[in-house]
Design a protein around this nucleic acid. Structure first.
Lengths: 192, 192, 192, 192
DNA sequence: AATGAATGAGACTTCATTCAT
DNA sequence: GATGAATGAAGTCTCATTCAT
């Protein structure tokens, strides 16, 4: 059997390939059920090659989480900055749209960072906090806890992303609009 | 440690102990990070004892999931039955209260069955479906998808349970009320 | 659960029961595939009871082997003693009859001692030796090795016991006759 | 021992080594008393290496049995085909010679497949059947059951292989001749 | 740049055996 | 005489990781 460098092979290409496959497998099957052997098999490479590009299994996973986390927090920071003035609903709408766009473009990473990772709780908590502050300033939550509202919104985003965005049943922009509609009904026409 | 029966030992006690510890550890650390050795160590027993009372690690975990699933689906069935007549908001309020009460009484089991288990997705999807039908009958969602509303509600429940119920910041009844308030704002003229 | 001595129970009866079941299971499934738990389960007793009557698994098995061995060697000794005078064929016929009778009466023990046990090789070798000497004295094995004849006879006995005696297709006496007929054809109509 | 590839190591060599050692140990000590740790220790390798080349302990054992079984049955088929015409004794002589040659060349495999394996009973029964048919066509078994003859022959082969072939006291060809002589005596000098 | 070959560490599980009642 | 409850010891197998080429 021939060994060594393959014709037409390139380090960067292999690394990218491994990274993409790892992301997909981790997102689909979780950290523990995804074996290095699975990853390299899917990439048509071998196990030592994996260690050529990544320190080890865990650090790769952590990197993926971190990557999501950074994007997410960056987004959140932007939201906070923009928060000063302007219309709340417009603001939220813009933010959700961007968020859903990112989620839709990076479903695997999102699955890992927003659903699987232990840190995902932290992210969601932060998100809630920001929303809470945002809302507290503007809306009169006459008799109810603003935290409920904030957590609910985050939960809705979480669930809707999974059920309607990842399944491609809804587009990011539309989803943002509809979520907004639910939480800020224009005219709540509710007959029993 | 000497072999054989311990002084003052009782099978039922040991089994219960192991079950409780296993439930707690699984819920805290997940299936893979929880070793049988951890479970028995915490129970001050040895590994073979585990197999005296449980078939194996996986089947114990599955049993826990099943236990949650049964309770949850039973609850859901009750909701469906009661759905025929009556005021929607009252109905939901009662159901959520019961649900939150169950969650609060069984936090570890809930963590496993509603958050960790692969089947949890299925449960939530079913929950959404039921809610969707319930709502569709009564409310006029003028221009928006009732699924959004249903998924959002489920997501809210999920998140709020984790952040406010499990942390004991809210009581089940109150949480139910507040969630209802968010989704059916009084000033939103939604009387039945 | 009640513990302690059962009504109507008797130590000797339990011991005999365990012994019989153990013999059957060992003979059917072999030493390794037969578990103490299987034995006591079949006897409707519990594991500690086993140790009340037997030192341990191996020693019980060894006892069974020894029991067979003793009977077998005793038989062999009788054959050697009777060997001095008399008609060879009659002698063999009588011996085989007795042997087959013992085998037929103790199929489980025979299975263990003559087929499974490592010592069975030793027994068969001894058997061969005795036959060889017996034959050597009387028959003129013009040009062939008497060992072949002796080993063949033992092999025939071994196989025929399994296939025709244990299956109850043949009675001990008849089997003895027929074997003799094969090895000492009266009218050796042996055309090529 | 350091991890990773050894100097001068080769997969095929290791696999063959393990296979050979396993065959020997299984044949000598049986399935249960042969531990994987014994096999790899004898090969100066470690346990995971075993799993690099074999599915697991049982499947390796089954493979060995199958290997023997295939050779044996192939042989038997040839015997059946050649059975149509020709001299019976010559036929048998040729067959036994080939059989003994195979046994002598593969003593470990034969020990496993013809003596230890549960399937060995099936093989011997088939062998008997074939012999029985072969004999029934040609010889006049005036008053005796041909099965006796067939089973005896198989038993003789079994025993003689163990006692004279494996010990290298006899060559395959000679053993075949002598067995034939016993069962088809030229001049049956059978005085009592 | 990549692979073939191997291992350390550890998890799960089984089974004979033993105490305490 | 018998059992309920437990364990020591060991075996099989898996997986991430590493050396030598």
């Amino acid at each position: 059997m021939p060994r060594g460098r393959r014709v037409n092979s390139s380090g960067e290409k292999s690394k990218k390939l491994l990274l993409d496959i790892a992301t997909e497998l981790f997102s689909k099957y979780g950290y523990h059920k995804t074996k290095i052997s699975d990853i390299v098999k899917a990439a048509n490479l071998t196990q030592p090659t994996f260690y050529l590009y990544f320190e080890n299994k865990e650090s790769l996973y952590r990197d993926l989480i971190l990557q999501f986390k950074n994007s997410f927090l960056e987004n959140l920071d932007r939201l906070k900055e923009e928060a000063k003035g302007g219309n709340l609903i417009d603001l939220l709408h813009r933010h959700l749209t961007v968020l859903f766009q990112y989620f839709a473009s990076n479903p695997y990473l999102t699955k890992i960072g927003f659903y699987q990772a232990e840190e995902s709780e932290e992210l969601k908590a932060k998100f809630s906090k920001v929303l809470e502050e945002l809302l507290a300033e503007r809306i009169e939550f006459s008799e109810h806890d603003p935290r409920i509202f904030a957590h609910s919104l985050v939960g809705a985003i979480e669930r809707v992303t999974l059920m309607l965005l990842f399944t491609k049943e809804k587009e990011p922009e539309q989803l943002a609009s509809e979520i907004i509609n639910v939480y800020f009904p224009k005219t709540a026409v509710c007959k029993s």
